[in-house]
Nucleic acid binder design. Structure first.
Lengths: 150, 150
DNA sequence: TTAAGTGCAAACCCTTTGCGCAGCT
DNA sequence: AGCTGCGCAAAGGGTTTGCACTTAA
């Protein structure tokens, strides 16, 4: 169904469907829960014996972002990551500063913020909401450690 | 007063106060409303006849972030920008996709989100909340244009 | 057939690092 | 003297680009 959208968009813009473009999109479909960078996509394809060049991976990802199939995420570590853009479900990211794990957080309160912005004349297209901190697991570990020391 | 904080922090960590460190911090103080990248800082100093090497600019900025005097912002264009971290006033960014202007948005609703996270065991340290869209000015312009066409 | 797409390697660009010299303490 | 800090230039690392070859339509 993502593939269908891709084909449709390509036709609209008079671009072509190619095996490489399908392969790149499939990587994102098969790794839905992950946040993959271009390098990751390249390596995943490579280890599956599908050789798609890095240049093509980068170009295809740009295309998929342009088509709204992928959302670009930036965790501030110098690597752009991407995730399938499921329009229905807006979610955000909590990044643990200790273990590095990324939690997806569903947020309903943002609706209020959206409404306020709209009333001020802002049209929003994309939210990027990241929270950095310490996740429950890590703060539990830290707690245990300090108790053992006593 | 930022300078005082810098001096204090440096003393704490047994680092030294230098003219370069003061100059870099001053650039941020004198350009409070802007979001400067390292390159910008370097150029601003250069055009004011103060030569501080790029390496030092980068190193000093890292230091200032470490001390909590600067906040790192990432608008996803491959350049890290920084702003003076005024702890009191949490604000966020609206980036217009047409004119590129960055609006600072004060947000009070995030308090609710913070509370919910806390109750789930998440400890947050930093919020990064960016909204991409079209600002009131640009959407007005677009509107006028389409009306003229009629 | 022919314009779009691909692969390769080199180029880019922001950022980081190694190293010798300068300057606090 | 012994570190810390600086400037310079080179290296790093993710991303982009030029160009000749390949391929979808």
């Amino acid at each position: 169904m993502y593939i269908e959208t891709l084909k449709k968009e390509l036709k609209n813009k008079k671009y072509r469907m190619t095996p490489q473009r399908e392969l790149v999109l499939k990587v994102f479909i098969d790794n839905e829960s992950k946040h993959l960078g271009a390098e990751d996509v390249y390596r995943l394809l490579f280890s599956n014996k599908h050789t798609v060049s890095k240049a093509t991976v980068y170009r295809t990802i740009d295309l998929l972002v342009e088509f709204g199939l992928l959302r670009k995420i930036d965790f501030g570590d110098g690597i752009y990551r991407y995730e399938l853009a499921k329009k229905e479900k807006m979610h955000h990211h909590f990044i643990c500063k200790i273990c590095g794990k990324i939690y997806e957080i569903e947020e309903k309160h943002l609706e209020i913020i959206k409404k306020e912005l709209l009333s001020q004349g802002f049209q929003f297209e994309d939210f990027d909401f990241k929270i950095y901190g310490i996740c429950p697991k890590c703060s539990k570990k830290a707690k245990n450690k300090s108790e053992n020391k006593k």
